[in-house]
Design a protein around this nucleic acid. Structure first.
Lengths: 377, 377
DNA sequence: CTTGTTTTATTCGAGCTCTGAATAAATATG
DNA sequence: CATATTTATTCAGAGCTCGAATAAAACAAG
């Protein structure tokens, strides 16, 4: 944040940093810290002056679309969270055009309600294989449409630049921004929640596949003839670990009819977890199996990619205590000890708020050239 | 190879290329093409003069260590293959010091026999998790020792710089050098032979894991309680596809005792393949199962990494016709069609010669700074 | 309060790489 | 032989970055 620190992180001399920041300060893109805000003088020497992005450069709206839920968040150019909101709304049944209309309306309404006249860009995280470069959802487990040009569709409706990203990738990015250790080396971030996704970072940069998308690791099919998955396959990792899968299988145990609501609410999931913790053997068995699949999944990642870090995150971590025994047993039986020892496994109880923050940060990053241009005008 | 082409590939202006190559030409590191060697003039304009590395800068020995076999190859600084040899020698039973002694002796003898007085470096490809940066074999399925400092051990014995690398990584690198398409985007190269390894390239650069090694994808355990693997686990990909596994299981079918020689020769493998092609149902079943595992493996790679290319290579491709039906069926049932379509699958019948070439190229790359220094002296 | 110490930031000149434009070179075409 | 076309080189200038010197801002000690 201070110039010296920036220099150290980027491997530049302080002189260079001064050069570069000078013009940004002139243009008002950066602002210096108030004199009083400095940390009280515990160290001698001229105190470092921290640099911040100006608040006045406009704001960005981050959006996450779940199965039947839209999360919205407004962040100013200094990175401060201004407002957030969520809307319960089934999105799955909508057609492509309808979906984009609904999203555009929700975003416009949110911007109006929060009184943000200076929205400069929108970042949207969604499930599926997302071509971030061209702004296309190539495939999604929740959309019928294929190759949906979501970014341009929203961009036209809103008159703003729109960045779209896979949700697990956005979450991985956000988590890595919080912990510098995760930005060095290779970090695989497994997000368990509505579905199961993975974001993979190499030295803090998101890994991009053939069509500039992320990974669909959640749809690796680990158990032949296993339970049905949203993607149409059977035995996917997701079909054991996602909220909808656990909820569905919990209902089946009780011989109740298949649930009408496809996606359970947070309270429904909490209740299942509470019952399992209280000792329900059938539910415990469900979590035992899920943990085993999670262990196999993490084992595959270790053997294949040898990441420095694996992060397990998302709402699914609520039941980590129930998953852990079978997770660890499976992981152990799946991996070579010498290799397993090279990877640190973290459990991060991250909320969807963090995810929207992540996609905002990415939008800022991808569009920073535009911001500079905006300021010039 | 011509200056203009170098500039286009590296994104530099012709002027820059001239600048840089001028000093190298002066130092004798590069040589220009003979006047007569130019392609006959089908195109107008001043003909391009191609640049080559000089032959006189010394040579590099590439080595591959298999289960019971050493492959050696001498390459001059122009990249021309000067000599190659293989030695049948069981390596598995040797201790760490003994192994390094045997390798050093074999390399010295080979250099002497080929009359190469100007060997400047050695590149060695071996199985296991290899820390190329520090020259340490962190783990290997064929060595008892862990964290073996193979590069420094050989370097001391030979008095030469030694680069070590995982064998599948070296093969991937070599194959990508032959086909420019594989150097753009992401290429996963699955080598089936003595064992099963994977080298993963991102834009032509080898992916490095936590300890700067490659992948141990061959030891992903796909079938719980499956056949025994060399690594000590059960149901590894390798335990279905590697030569030793197919040979062992073929012997078991006939109720013969377990084979005494752990690693079958090329003729033994050819005979198994021939019998299967001739219609032996039990052997066909073996290959069917192997193909299924290969399909699952490729499926996992596609879902996880979305590579642009997957290359299946190594001696195991000899039976690709037997593997193919079940391979394709498994691949289809394992993957989402929209994602599968993004990856091109290549079968490359690559020999171990190519592998030693790969490790030489890498050694040249990693040690090129040294070569420049050598020339200065 | 003054002087020295320590750390941060800026200025400035020098070095370095790369580039565009102009030029030269080498060949094919008519 | 003149012209077109492509390749290579030369050269001056732009742009980055850095080291050294300098200035600035605080604390510490007397």
């Amino acid at each position: 944040m201070a110039r010296v620190e920036i220099g150290q992180q980027l491997g530049m001399s302080p002189a260079t940093v001064s050069d570069l920041t000078a013009s940004l300060l002139d243009d008002g893109v950066l602002v210096t810290e108030e004199a009083g805000d400095a940390t009280p003088g515990l160290i001698r020497g001229r105190p470092k002056v921290r640099l911040f992005f100006a608040e006045t450069l406009g704001s960005v709206i981050g959006v996450w679309t779940g199965f039947n839920r839209i999360e919205l968040r407004l962040v100013d150019s200094a990175g401060r969270n201004r407002a957030s909101r969520h809307i319960e709304r089934p999105l799955r049944t909508l057609g492509a055009e309808e979906l984009m209309d609904v999203l555009a309306q929700s975003i416009t309404a949110f911007a109006r309600e929060t009184g943000a006249p200076d929205v400069k860009a929108v970042g949207l995280a969604c499930q599926g294989y997302v071509d971030t470069k061209d702004g296309i959802v190539a495939w999604s487990p929740v959309l019928g449409a294929r190759d949906l040009p979501l970014a341009s569709g929203l961009s036209e409706r809103l008159g703003l630049p729109v960045l779209i990203e896979n949700d697990a990738s956005a979450m991985a990015f956000a988590i890595a921004q919080r912990d510098p250790a995760l930005r060095t080396g290779r970090t695989a971030c497994l997000m368990v929640g509505d579905g199961v996704g993975m974001g993979f970072l190499i030295n803090g940069e998101l890994y991009r596949g053939a069509r500039f998308g992320g990974s669909e690791f959640g749809h690796v099919r680990l158990r032949r003839g296993g339970p049905q998955c949203r993607c149409g396959g059977r035995g996917c990792i997701e079909a054991f670990l996602a909220d909808y899968a656990l909820h569905r299988d919990a209902q089946l145990i009780d011989h109740r009819p298949a649930p009408t609501a496809l996606i359970p609410g947070e309270d429904a999931m909490d209740s299942i977890v509470a019952q399992a913790r209280a000792g329900d053997p059938a539910l415990q068995n469900l979590f035992r199996e899920a943990g085993e699949v999670l262990g196999d999944a993490v084992g595959i990642l270790i053997q294949t990619l040898e990441p420095d870090h694996i992060v397990i995150c998302g709402p699914g971590t609520r039941a980590i205590d129930l998953l852990r025994p079978s997770f660890e047993a499976a992981l152990e039986s799946q991996t070579i000890p010498e290799l397993r020892a090279l990877t640190t496994i973290h459990v991060v109880e991250s909320s969807m708020d963090l995810l929207t923050e992540g996609v905002v940060m990415q939008a800022l990053r991808e569009l920073d050239l535009d911001l500079a241009r905006l300021k010039a005008a």
